[in-house]
Design a protein around this nucleic acid. Structure first.
Lengths: 188, 188
DNA sequence: CAGCCCCTGTACCGATCGGTATATTGCGCG
DNA sequence: CGCGCAATATACCGATCGGTACAGGGGCTG
């Protein structure tokens, strides 16, 4: 494994574990077994390290989510797929998912939040667009696209957060139930 | 305003704005117009400052939420009240709300997350208990209390996050619509 | 072999980190 | 008045912060 890869790997673990601001570059370098100039050679700055990490590890997943969220006439199926994709992401890359979740709700003026903002915005927009497109087939939805997108994302985040804390397993059944509740409410 | 109060005030603004780890005690002291020993006299440590902040400013709100979430036979009304209470909290104390939200999703091993964990746990439990109690009246809900609680909290967080970003106003109508969607799904 | 250049370690920068020893202030109280 | 104590400032601690100057090292190309 190249030094560059090792740095990304350890940075992910450390940032996800204790938070971007609480981890120093020195610590990342030590964990990766290299000296600081190596880190600065590859990434230029601490922020550059985070940006490379997000760009190379998270951006592909975002692209997949956006693809899953494309409306093709079957809303229930699409919802299941979007939620399922996110849950699988959380199961397969828990560290990355934890980091993303923390950054999603990080204070907006923080350095880390600025680095991930474009990716999160793309993801949020894709879900909103999904409901906007679906509203053309389900007239009663019109004007509520934003509420729907917010609720769906919030629900997913809440589930993922509990799963990352080890208190919930994100299997297909949980995804199915979550989508069912989202789609039909709590009284049915 | 006492120096102690000034320290809490400025710490809240700074922690909410850029994150707990990214703000140094020096900066808090300077903003409050006092020297470091004053901070350490009142709070003992940086963490103590955060804990006092949460205990004195946030804990009362949590107690209110827990009270609002007590089930008294009318689930729709209770849901509206819980969501409304949280939305009002976000409108009235945006800085505190932003800080709490960031800590809610902060990496679990971080110092800040440990300080707020008990409060958040109480809040989450109160919502779960609400649905557990309601399930005694609405049999079909049984076994889904956790999904419901997660979805409701996630929805609220998502709304609040967007409102704190200035892209949504949390009026009573938004709360009503959110609860309606939560209760009856997206197709009705 | 010579030259070059990507890569990396040593050693260091000034600034800031969280935290503290010590002295002084000012106020309530006997 | 004088005692005592909470509150505060000055000045400092060692450690770490993000970042860098510089000197090879090592491999590829001429």
């Amino acid at each position: 494994m190249s030094n560059r890869t090792a740095l990304l790997e350890r940075a992910l673990e450390l940032f996800a574990g204790r938070g971007y601001d609480a981890v120093g570059v020195q610590e990342v370098c030590a964990a990766a077994g290299v000296a600081k100039p190596t880190l600065y050679h590859y990434f230029g700055s601490k922020r550059g390290l985070l940006e490379a990490l997000l760009e190379e590890r998270y951006a592909p997943s975002v692209a997949r989510f956006v693809e899953f969220a494309r409306y093709a006439g079957d809303l229930p199926r699409t919802l299941e797929e979007v939620v399922g994709a996110y849950f699988r992401f959380a199961e397969e890359e828990p560290a990355l998912c934890r980091l993303v979740l923390a950054l999603w709700f990080a204070s907006p003026e923080s350095e880390a939040a600025g680095a991930i903002a474009p990716l999160l915005e793309a993801q949020r927009r894709s879900v909103e667009d999904l409901f906007a497109a679906a509203a053309r087939d389900h007239g009663n939805m019109r004007g509520r696209e934003r509420t729907y997108a917010l609720t769906l994302l919030g629900m997913v985040h809440a589930h993922v957060a509990l799963a990352l804390a080890g208190r919930l397993e994100l299997d297909a059944e949980v995804a199915r139930r979550a989508v069912h509740q989202f789609s039909h409410g709590i009284y049915s």
